[in-house]
């Protein structure tokens, strides 16, 4: 899976055209509320076959951070056990 594919998935979950998603855009600006953000992160894992835990998201603030995290996460395995 490459960077563009992850970006396209994120854009489709956010119901936004991929071209409008910039790496520096804050996730909180895109999600309508914190529950929407939880929903997006969980759906993204189902779509991409990766698994994240809360600790992994600690420093994820922007679209670029989330793309990098998904690219680094192991498929079907818990990424971090901390």
């Amino acid at each position: 899976m490459d960077r563009d594919a992850v970006k396209i998935k994120i854009a489709s979950l956010l119901r936004q055209p991929p071209a409008t998603l910039r790496d520096e855009t804050a996730l909180t600006d895109l999600a309508t509320d914190s529950f929407a953000l939880v929903e997006i992160v969980i759906e993204l894992q189902e779509e991409l076959g990766v698994r994240l835990v809360q600790e992994d998201l600690k420093d994820v603030k922007s679209v670029g951070d989330l793309i990098r995290l998904c690219l680094n996460a192991g498929h079907g395995q818990v990424f971090s056990k901390t």
């Binding site: 914190s34 529950f35 939880v38 969980i42 994240l52 835990v53 998201l57 600690k58």
Partner: peptide
């Protein structure tokens, strides 16, 4: 209640955490 939980406990990141 739930809004206050997310602020204090942080955002759950997967279904198990939810």
């Amino acid at each position: 209640y739930q809004d206050q939980y997310l602020v204090a406990a942080g955002m759950p990141a997967n279904l198990m955490e939810v």
